[in-house]
Design a protein around this nucleic acid. Structure first.
Length: 287
DNA sequence: AATAACTCCAACCGCCAAATG
DNA sequence: GCATTTGGCGGTTGGAGTTAT
């Protein structure tokens, strides 16, 4: 099944790099299973792919991370979690491995999300939320959603009430596809909104964007993600609360970053703004 | 100068989902 | 519908280089 016995491991030699580079430049990326044999490399397909993506691919940026890159990593990590490939996709010339390594060696100790104290009286109102794990997907002729077979809208209230028709077969990728679809569109805004809120209770004010970013669900309850007004990335708060506890309208408070899959909460968000614009980033072209 | 401790990063590993037969 | 193959991802590790003692 997997790789053949006796393949080389460890650091790549210049000769191996040259062979791999030559093959990819000639035949293009992909078909990695063919690469070792046809390029004359005694390496596994995964090793070839990784070597190309992380080292040999043109336009890969080397050297220290710039201040703006670090800031972007921190902000995107707060939004996306350990989705290194997605984060790297927003940083020109950086690979997912670079970003991951940088995070693990430089940032993981520095960046601490707000955590509620054990005796925080408001802690009990916290509800666990579904983690939204968007993944890049490729359009395929067999994609169910493309054929209109998949139910993309599968909203749930924080109390677990299913608002839409959620197929039991709705895979994680389907959910993520839905997330991405809605990321750049403003449909279904009456179901789930991501919007800005003014400081006053319940008011929305798009002009204040992005001072205070909130996700609201106009159903039985609501959850929110907020960004502090002083734009200090270290003060970004990801929080949730349940209106069923009678706390709707209270000022946001730091909550445990408790976004977990399979719990009650929202499954889908709709952004009526370009989130990358808000983050000060533009999607990069493939590197 | 020797070596222990630490840092960094390239590479490997295991898992998952989509594609394919 | 099922089994296998493939591509891709995030987590982890090993070793080279650097710094501290």
């Amino acid at each position: 099944m997997e790789e053949a016995i006796g393949v080389r491991k460890g650091a790549w030699t210049e000769e191996e790099d040259a062979l791999l580079k030559e093959w990819v430049e000639k035949y293009g990326e992909g078909k990695w299973h063919q690469v070792p044999r046809r390029a004359g490399l005694n390496r596994c397909r995964k090793s070839c792919r990784l070597r190309w993506l992380n080292y040999l691919k043109p336009n890969i940026k080397r050297g220290a991370f710039q201040e703006d890159e670090v800031d972007m990593i921190i902000r995107l990590h707060k939004l996306l979690g350990n989705r290194w490939s997605l984060i790297a996709g927003r940083l020109l010339g950086r690979t997912a491995n670079d970003v991951k390594n940088y995070w693990n060696t430089h940032l993981v100790k520095k960046v601490i999300y707000h955590k509620p104290k054990e005796d925080d009286p408001q802690r009990k109102f916290a509800t666990k939320m579904n983690v939204i794990r968007p993944r890049p997907w490729n359009l395929s002729k067999s994609s169910a959603w493309l054929k209109g077979k998949a139910t993309l809208v599968a909203s749930m209230t924080p109390t677990g009430e299913n608002l839409g028709q959620q197929s039991p077969m709705l895979s994680r990728r389907n959910k993520e596809s839905a997330w991405w679809e809605n990321l750049f569109t403003d449909n279904d805004l009456d179901k789930v909104l991501i919007t800005s809120r003014s400081g006053s209770e319940g008011q929305r004010d798009a002009k204040l964007w992005p001072q205070n970013l909130a996700m609201e669900e106009e159903q039985n309850g609501w959850n929110e993600l907020s960004v502090d007004a002083d734009n200090d990335p270290d003060k970004v708060i990801i929080t949730s609360r349940s209106s069923s506890e009678g706390q709707q309208g209270a000022q946001p408070w730091p909550q445990e970053l408790a976004m977990e899959e399979g719990q009650n909460g929202w499954n889908e968000l709709s952004f009526n703004e370009d989130i990358w614009e808000l983050l000060g980033a533009r999607p990069q072209a493939d590197i």
